[in-house]
Amino acid sequence: MVDTAAGFTSPLSAVLFFYVHGAATRVPVEETAFAARRPQWDVDVIGQWTDGAESARHTDWLRASWARAEEHLQGSAYVNHIATDDAPEKVRASFGPNLDRLRRIKGQYDPANLFRLNPNISPVAPQPRRPAD
């Protein structure tokens, strides 16, 4: 991370560390969509710039920075830090045991997957309810 920060291509970029602990870790995993409910450090590498003509250079730096870091990470991320081009496996791992429930909810409220321009949770059709005996 020190090398990443030393190679910033923009003074607006950042490497941030967040310690997830306290109240966030006391809520059971299945109670919310957020599955990272254990004490842990989270890292975020952010590329920011103002000149659109420089996008390729900054994006290359950002992708290279993550590529170096990925081998040291657990394969999941805080869901607000998932990029739209992250692998589906990372998205699944980040939602953890909540993914199946979230897919069913999405199937109920967004079956056409209109809200898909994000780390997508693909919807599954709700199962019909069986009549009570």
Score class of each variant (00 low, 15 high):
Ser65His: 03
Ala23Glu: 14
Gly52Val: 00
Pro131Ser: 09
Thr32His: 11
Val27Asp: 09
Asp133Lys: 12
Met1Ala: 13
Glu30Leu: 09
Ala112His: 04
Ala36Ser: 13
Ser10Gly: 03
Arg57Tyr: 00
Asn118Ala: 04
Gln48Lys: 14
Ile105Thr: 09
Met1His: 08
Ser122Pro: 05
Asp3Gln: 09
Phe34Arg: 10
Asn118Lys: 02
Arg104Ile: 00
Arg129Ser: 13
Gly96Ile: 07
Glu89Asn: 05
Pro97Ser: 15
Thr50Asp: 10
Ala132Asn: 08
Glu70Met: 11
Ala35Arg: 01
Gly7His: 01
Ile82Trp: 01
Ser13Glu: 03
Gln127Tyr: 00
Gly22Ala: 06
Arg130Lys: 15
Arg38Trp: 10
Tyr109Phe: 15
Arg130Ile: 08
Gly47His: 00
Leu16Cys: 12
Pro128Cys: 06
Pro88Arg: 11
Gly22Lys: 08
Ala125Gly: 09
Pro28His: 06
Phe8Leu: 12
Ala87Gly: 10
Val20Met: 14
Arg68Glu: 13
Leu12Val: 00
Trp61Gln: 01
Ala64Lys: 02
Leu102Val: 00
Trp41Asp: 10
Gly47Cys: 05
Leu102Phe: 02
Gly96Phe: 04
Ile121Ser: 03
Asp133Thr: 13
Ile46Arg: 13
His21Gly: 10
Asp60Phe: 00
Asn120Thr: 11
